[in-house]
Design a protein around this nucleic acid. Structure first.
Length: 311
DNA sequence: GCCATTTGACCATG
DNA sequence: CATGGTCAAATGGC
């Protein structure tokens, strides 16, 4: 299985510590994913018993992997990570900014060097007809009139920016009045511990109690030119960590962490998403599910993913 | 009094 | 220099 080979190669590069365990677990998960992929090809909705069994296997596998990665040993791994990782305090944390400021003028009005704009942070955009509660606590810190825009843009930061150092921000701008349309740009992932409420699902027709989390993996098969799709279940309590880890380690990847019911998955949507994946090798990108909503269009740095409203 | 929002100023970036 | 992202004092609501 080519996916497995790529995964092993990847793990060899970034996981020198405790590598075999991690690789074994990831390989196992990949095998399950491959089987699941085949099953889903034959069944239109993927909700059969076989799929459920495989999902359970993948669930266990990746849970184990995450547990290992979250061990203290992982801290040692982090030193091998690329320096371009997002969320570095040196890039956008206020403490480093303040230290810069303190070395300059003490005048209150003089804020030269007091902050740096965040760059390299992962961002994605949603467009929705109404402002919805995404489950996170946000605090407005600015409003700006934007050129050629009818409405001002509002700037929000996570309420846990200072108590937990969460660097997540979002920008909300109303695009239309009739019908109302709001564009929300999320920048950075939540690192705060506060667990979001499931309210994000209440805005859609999806029953929150049945909602599950899946990691969609898009990969191109170099041999026959086909794009393959795998998706894995995840756990709400852990996906923050998962997203964070993946984000830091695979900055140039193309996996999508989505929330949805398993059954209503629409193949045409999956296929159209795949065509936007430019990878000639397997790419992995995960996103913070808590910030994503069913029924929205997501634009990432270089990809577009449409996730339809389920009926 | 505390906390969130408002708003003008400051600053980074292209 | 224009634009937009962020800061922080002022303000308002509870």
């Amino acid at each position: 299985m080519e996916e497995v080979t790529k995964m092993e190669s990847f793990c060899s590069e970034i996981l020198p510590f405790n590598r075999k365990k991690v690789i074994d677990e990831l390989l196992r998960g990949c095998r399950f994913a491959g089987k699941l992929k085949d099953v889903l090809r034959e069944t239109c909705c993927g909700g059969g018993g076989d799929a459920r069994e495989l999902i359970t296997g993948i669930f266990d596998s990746f849970s184990n992997t995450l547990s290992m990665l979250n061990s203290p040993e992982f801290d040692e791994i982090s030193q091998f990570l690329p320096s371009t990782q997002v969320g570095s305090p040196c890039l956008d944390g206020r403490k480093s900014e303040d230290s810069v400021q303190s070395s300059k003028s003490s005048t209150v009005k003089d804020r030269r060097g007091c902050y740096k704009r965040r760059r390299n942070s992962q961002s994605w955009t949603t467009e929705r007809p109404a402002l919805v509660d995404d489950g996170h606590g946000w605090r407005k810190y600015g409003q700006k009139v934007i050129l050629n825009a009818k409405h001002p843009r509002n700037y929000y930061r996570c309420t846990h920016k200072y108590d937990q150092g969460c660097q997540a921000t979002k920008q909300v701008q109303q695009l239309n009045e009739k019908p109302p349309l709001y564009r929300t740009t999320y920048i950075g992932h939540h690192t705060c511990k506060a667990s979001p409420t499931p309210q994000i699902f209440l805005d859609s027709d999806v029953d929150a109690s049945d909602s599950k989390t899946f990691l969609l993996s898009f990969s191109n098969d170099c041999k026959n030119g086909e794009t393959s799709v795998s998706f894995f279940p995840s756990i709400k309590q852990e996906h923050d960590k998962e997203a964070d880890l993946t984000h830091h380690h695979h900055s140039s990847s193309s996996n999508y962490l989505l929330s949805s019911d398993l059954s209503p998955f629409d193949h045409s949507v999956v296929n159209s998403s795949c065509t936007t994946s430019t990878a000639t090798t397997t790419k992995t990108r995960s996103l913070d599910l808590d910030d994503m909503m069913v029924g929205s269009v997501y634009e990432f740095d270089d990809d577009v993913l449409q996730f339809p409203e389920f009926s």
